[in-house]
Design a protein around this nucleic acid. Sequence first.
RNA 1: UGGGGCGUCGCCAAGCGGUAAGGCACCGGAUUUUGAUUCCGGCAUUCCCAGGUUCGAACCCUGGCGCCCCAGCCA
Length: 565
Amino acid sequence: MSNEKNNPAEQTAAEQPRDFIRNIIAEDLASNKNDGRLATRFPPEPNGYLHIGHAKSICLNFGVAAEQGGVCHLRFDDTNPVKEENEFIDAIKADLHWLGFDWGDNEFFASNYFEQLYQWAMQLISAGKAYVDDLSGEEIRQLRGTLSEPGSNSPYRERSVAENLDLFERMRNGEFADGAKVLRAKIDMAAPNMNLRDPVMYRILHAHHHRTGDKWCIYPMYDFAHGQSDSIEKITHSICTLEFADHRPLYDWFIQQLGIFAPHQYEFARLNLGYTVMSKRKLHQLVADKHVCGWDDPRMPTLVGMRRRGYPAQAIRTFCERIGVGKSDSWIDMSVLEDCVREQLNETAPRAMAVINPLKVVLTDYPEGKVEMLDAPIHPQQPEMGRRQIPFSREIYIERDDFMMDPPKKFFRLGPEREVRLRYGYIIKCNEVIRNDAGEVVELRCSHDNATLGAAPQGRKVKGIIHWVSQAHALAVEVRQYDRLFNVASPGTNKDGVDFIDELNPGSRQILTCCYAEPALADATIGTAYQFERLGYYCADCDSDDKKLVFNQTVTLRDSWQKQK
RNA sequence: UGGGGCGUCGCCAAGCGGUAAGGCACCGGAUUUUGAUUCCGGCAUUCCCAGGUUCGAACCCUGGCGCCCCAGCCA
């Protein structure tokens, strides 16, 4: 017993998340299946950027391998040259590393297996299990039948092995035009599972492949490449999303016909997050049609977008752990992700003050030209992070929202004749409100209580505390505030005919160009998170330059006042 | 109406015949120079429905109902 408790490995194992896949793997390992070997893989197609949905799969595959002492391969499923690019390969690898995972030398490409796949196709032809079909795509579709009616055999289905071998070789040699012929598996046109109705194995594509160049003009379909790729790599547990469950019998069929190592496939439910989109097609469209400023737009659910937004990799890993892995279609609320981000950032982010909607305040009883350096912790709960000095002077900016002309009783901030504490500074009282011709409040004249620096006020209670920035020392910055990208929980899947583009939230990005931050923020490096006290977490954006710093709002602080209102 | 998958709190999710974990959200309340954090407390007599088996069922059986996926020479 005591040994168990003292063994950190066992302790963590007990605390590790359990789900049906991890349970299966644990059982397999316990029963010494696959000689106690565990190999998983993350198999992205290099045709776009990774998003938070991929992160779920990544954390599962790499996570379980790490937990159980197995390996997780990175394999690019690059069987469709017309959609894939090297740009995406590099981006995917960078995202994976950023997320905190490493695959060592286990980096593979389905395209590396093209020759083997071709040989296996020949083997199936020789065994009478595959044939070259001259039907057009349209004709194949016609003969496939429907969900409730069986399909019918292609007139080319009974070609001789010799003819098939010859034709397939000539397909490879480039004798035929795109679409002229395909190689199909000979299974069963009446199979209730559509995937088994003589699926296409190879198509002719005179296209340049990002890795194999012009070596091939026939390319295997995903279904003829994926299972065998797993087999070649001796993957023990082939984890994928639910929609591939119907393909499992086909993969198993190929593996069995070929007599090669048989990985087992397990399917889990893909991640759905509210008020955003996860489909690559939609993500591509948002970028291509400039509805966002790129794959790394901070509003995008892509890993590059979230990174730019300031989401820590750890928060994403925590999120993936928290949502679990199951088989029921699930919609996760953004608040779960945001909570993970807050939890992480609250612990690590240095605090700073910044005013994003400035209102000028003049402290009429504070000497002109005087500057005090006020002492404040960098993190109130973590003294070891050190302290910072904040310049204070006669003219400051406060947040417009922290002043109300006619405040309700529960409003603890500033109002005419009211008092409030300046964070880490004095208590001030609003004596005069200056308005412009339009009647808008443009400036406040206040007095300060000299005895309240680091001390409680005498004879009264002042509950409110507001943040501020000294005008003379303020750093002018731009702040970008973000809201959900879409107005509806499930864009593009709602009522008839509504384009998901029309469901974009026009107010998803708000750019505030006239913001002021405490001078220490001048040293902010791109991507590092700060908490702007009382507002939220922010990080410097890559659009920053020598002239102006730009900050992205990562996530707001919880705001029970906002709720109360 | 062919095949595959799924239905446990508003959203996720444990549970695997012995009498409903946990997280998010929500609602209190305490501490607080961030209306933050932290901290306490509340939040499914009930597990899609209906029968049945059993001393005992969310878990087993039967029958319904509902939702998702599949008819790309995409992955």
